[in-house]
Structures are given as structure tokens and as C-alpha cells.
């Protein structure tokens, strides 16, 4: 049997018809015997009736037209960055995961590629201040290349960078411009003289060209003109990479100058690259000297 207090708690639901049959029967039985609870029930019913009769608001006549005007004029609701980035999750999350992966791979690729590119940049920055005024527009380009070495963008043929005959002055210049190696010698990433080469006083040139075949052909032609010979061509995947040529020692300077001229005529970029330790081949008994020409394919962007 429910007490008055328990019945009071149920009266509100009783007014709303939300009691189970059993509880409702018990409440009804209690109300038949309890005047106080009947009064309370009457008050609750009056309050409920009063709330139901509260003044209401009629829709304004232009409610629907105004609404449709808003719907047509209003842009999409502004999304939070979370909505923008992640929703719908089933679509955006996989796409974003793939995109992140692609970017990561791209960054790694560029980082590796950038190192090769840096080699070329450093090649072109070690220029010879004693070389005088640029002999060709290409040389000016080479100097510009210090800031933005993009040799393949404009030239009809790929750029070629080579080192002129090394001299003590140039070695000094290179020493000033290049970071010092532990041994105190300026270090070019691209052009390090091997110990064996040093002992043979091997002079080394580098030719930067996007078309190694063209570079090779140019070198071959010039070698013939100075009565030299191509001793060896090392190839990498079918493209020439390193060439060793043998020239009369007296023709080395001329050979280099001609190679510079040839490239200058072609409007190609030129730059000086040299190992500061390189000394010109000094003919002793044999008036011939070897030159190693390294053909470098510049990184493309």
C-alpha cells in the first residue's frame, strides 16, 4: 500500500496518463480516500490546463517566403576546421592518409635529390674571380647560377659546366670560396681528387649536361682538334659518365679554352669547378697529359 507521499510523487504522471495500470489503480484507490491528495491532484490539473492555454504565436505571413529566401541566399553553414578536415570521415580520412604518404615520399625524394642538386650549386659557386670579364653570356649565367642554378630551364641545349685549367690563383680563389676540408683544402663535393689521381697529376674537368651524349660528342670533337685521344669512357646505364682523354700537355689550356668557347657559342651556362689541390699536369719526359672529364647530368625539376 502506497503512502500519501508516494502517491504525491505519482500524481503528476497520473495527470498525464503515464502510469501503469497497477499503479494507476492504486492511486485511484488512494484518491478516493484522501481529500488532501485530491486537492493536490486538482491543483496539478489546473496548472497543466493553464500551461496548455498559454498564449500562442501565429506564424507571420512571410515566414515561409522568408525561409526560402534564406535557403537560397545563405551559403553553406560555416564548418569548423574539424568538419572541414575530417568529415565525412569515411571519405576524407583514407584520402588524407594517402596524401600524407605521398607527401612524405615526395619530401624524402626531394631531400635526396636536393643533395645532388646541392653538388651542382656548389660546383657553380666555386668560380674563378681572376678569370676576368665574362667571355660569354653563358658565363654571366653561370654567375647567376650561384643564386638559382637551373641550367635546363632556358637553354636550347642543356647547360654545361666545366673547369678551366687550374692555376695557383684559382686554387687560392677556390680556397676562399669553398669550405675548407679537414686537410685544409677546399672541398668540392663533385670533384675530389683521388690519391692515385693526385700522384699522376691527373687534371679533372666536370661537364654538366642534361644530354650526356651531346657532351661526350663535344669532348670527342675537341680532343681530335688538339691531336689528343679518348682513352676511356665509363658509362652508367648507357649514358657516358666519365671520360679520360689524353692530350698533348701544351694543348691542355687550349683544349679547355675551346671547350669553354664551344659552350659559350651555344649559349650554355658555364661555371668553374675545380679542386683547389689540382695542379696542372706538368709534363716531364712525356709531353702528354691525361684529363678526366666527368659528365654530370643536372637534376631536373
Amino acid at each position: 500500500m502506497m503512502t500519501c507521499r508516494q502517491i504525491e510523487n505519482e500524481l503528476s504522471a497520473y495527470v498525464d496518463g503515464e502510469l501503469t495500470d497497477a499503479v494507476r489503480s492504486e492511486v485511484q484507490a488512494h484518491l478516493g480516500a484522501c481529500e488532501r491528495c485530491r486537492q493536490r491532484l486538482a491543483q496539478l490539473e489546473r496548472l497543466s490546463d493553464g500551461v496548455a492555454r498559454l498564449p500562442r504565436l501565429e506564424p507571420p505571413p512571410r515566414f515561409v517566403p522568408d525561409l526560402f529566401r534564406r535557403l537560397r541566399a545563405r551559403p553553406e553553414p560555416r564548418q569548423s576546421w574539424v568538419d572541414w578536415v575530417f568529415r565525412p570521415v569515411w571519405l576524407k580520412l583514407p584520402v588524407e592518409a594517402v596524401a600524407v604518404l605521398v607527401v612524405a615520399v615526395g619530401v624524402m625524394f626531394l631531400a635526396q635529390h636536393g643533395q645532388k642538386r646541392e653538388q651542382c650549386v656548389r660546383c657553380t659557386t666555386i668560380t674563378d674571380p681572376t678569370a676576368g670579364a665574362p667571355t660569354a653570356p653563358a658565363e654571366a649565367e653561370a654567375r647567376k647560377g650561384e643564386a638559382m642554378p637551373a641550367p635546363t630551364a632556358v637553354a636550347p641545349e642543356p647547360a654545361t659546366v666545366l673547369s678551366p685549367a687550374p692555376t695557383k690563383e684559382r686554387a687560392g680563389a677556390a680556397r676562399r670560396l669553398a669550405p675548407a676540408a679537414p686537410s685544409g683544402r677546399p672541398e668540392s663535393l663533385a670533384f675530389k681528387m683521388e690519391a692515385a689521381d693526385k700522384s699522376r697529376a691527373l687534371d679533372r674537368l666536370s661537364v654538366v649536361n642534361t644530354n650526356p651524349a651531346v657532351a661526350e660528342q663535344r669532348v670527342r670533337t675537341l680532343v681530335k682538334t688538339v691531336r689528343g685521344s679518348v682513352v676511356e669512357v665509363k658509362q652508367d646505364g648507357g649514358a657516358p659518365r666519365n671520360m679520360r682523354v689524353r692530350l698533348p700537355a701544351t694543348e691542355v689550356v687550349k683544349f679547355k679554352a675551346q671547350l669553354v668557347e664551344t659552350n659559350a657559342d651555344a649559349g650554355l651556362k658555364l661555371g668553374d669547378m675545380m679542386d683547389a689541390a689540382m695542379e696542372p699536369a706538368k709534363p716531364k719526359e712525356e709531353p702528354m697529359t691525361d684529363l678526366e672529364i666527368r659528365i654530370i647530368v643536372p637534376p631536373t625539376r
Partner: peptide
């Protein structure tokens, strides 16, 4: 456009009831 009025119940008896002080007070207390 906002000149809509509080809707009056159609039943005359309800109109009287809605206008009572009880409903006004109830509304305020709500």
C-alpha cells in the same frame, strides 16, 4: 511582418479563461 498577434482560442469560454489573471500569472511564473 512581425505584427502577428497572440492567437486567441476560438472557444468563447476558453477566451475568457485565457484572459484570466491566472493564466497571465502562470505565464510570468513559467
Amino acid at each position: 511582418e512581425m505584427s502577428q498577434q497572440v492567437a486567441a482560442p476560438t472557444d468563447p469560454a476558453d477566451v475568457e479563461l485565457a484572459k484570466t489573471e491566472f493564466v497571465r500569472t502562470l505565464e510570468r511564473k513559467m
